[in-house]
């Protein structure tokens, strides 16, 4: 029950994100159910543990449960305050890197590509089917995400101060790199499908797809910093003005 409450609280771990403490307040809030036994037995130590739990911290939010539970376990085991703070500091980097690899450079682009393929493949002709696929994809992603959050809390709770070593031996570091190629393939599928869904199928869209991918590849190879958003907005404004001026000249 305590682990479940912590897991639920982790859903809002970034609600009070600030440049000073980053996720600190959210981590502290999520730690409270786990630290509660200290409140009854040793109120002074409890307050000190709560203060330590809410200090500066930043990592991937989806894996934050590991540090929340590991630090709380260490507090309950009577570890010195400086050891708990050192544990948090030691876990921040690896959890950030692991989580970013798993989610931001893996699962999230994969889900995004699935949503694009579903939307582009069925959306224009059969929006209801696209809606079902989108809904199912979100259910699966969130099922995995909350399942992983619960696992993270349990993992940190079991290993306490030795969480760092246990993390290396767990299968987690190997998951992210396996998802990336799948996301790259599906992302590649999604681009022509999306462009064709809006622009219509045909040679024009194919040429456009090859042109933009070629340009993106060239930009990557030459380390050009192309800003697509700015280019698009400027392009749209420019085309609009041009059409307006041409129409004005014609009347």
């Amino acid at each position: 029950m305590t682990i479940a409450r912590t897991t639920v609280r982790l859903a809002c771990v970034q609600s009070c994100w600030s440049y000073d403490r980053m996720q600190g307040i959210g981590i502290g809030y999520a730690s409270l159910p786990l630290l509660a036994p200290l409140g009854a037995s040793d109120p002074d130590r409890y307050r000190a543990a709560v203060a330590r739990a809410s200090t500066f911290f930043n990592a991937n939010p989806y894996l934050a449960g590991i540090v929340v539970a590991a630090a709380a376990r260490a507090e309950l085991d009577g570890a010195a305050g400086e050891h708990v703070l050192r544990l948090k500091k030691a876990l921040a980097g690896p959890l950030g890197a692991l989580g970013d690899l798993l989610f931001w450079a893996g699962l999230v682009p994969l889900v995004s590509a699935i949503l694009l393929v579903a939307g582009a493949g069925w959306g224009v002709r059969e929006p209801a089917i696209a809606g079902w696929v989108i809904g199912l994809t979100l259910v699966l992603f969130n099922g995995f995400r909350f399942g992983l959050a619960r696992w993270s809390v349990g993992f940190g709770w079991r290993h306490g101060l030795s969480t760092g070593g246990a993390l290396v031996e767990s299968g987690l570091p190997r998951v992210g790199p396996r998802i990336a190629p799948l996301a790259a393939v599906l992302g590649g599928v999604a681009i022509p499908m999306t462009l064709a869904a809006i622009g219509g199928q045909g040679r024009t869209v194919s040429v456009l797809v090859l042109a933009v991918i070629g340009l993106a590849g060239l930009a990557r190879r030459r380390s050009w910093r192309l800003p697509p958003t700015a280019l698009t907005v400027v392009g749209i404004v420019g085309v609009g003005l041009w059409r307006w001026v041409v129409a004005g000249a014609g009347t």
Binding site: L195, I198, V212, R220, T229, T232, I236
Partner: peptide, 14 residues
Amino acid sequence: VAIAGSGLAGSIGL
């Protein structure tokens, strides 16, 4: 233009 820009953004991002 929006379609081309989105294709470029998606490719660069991936």
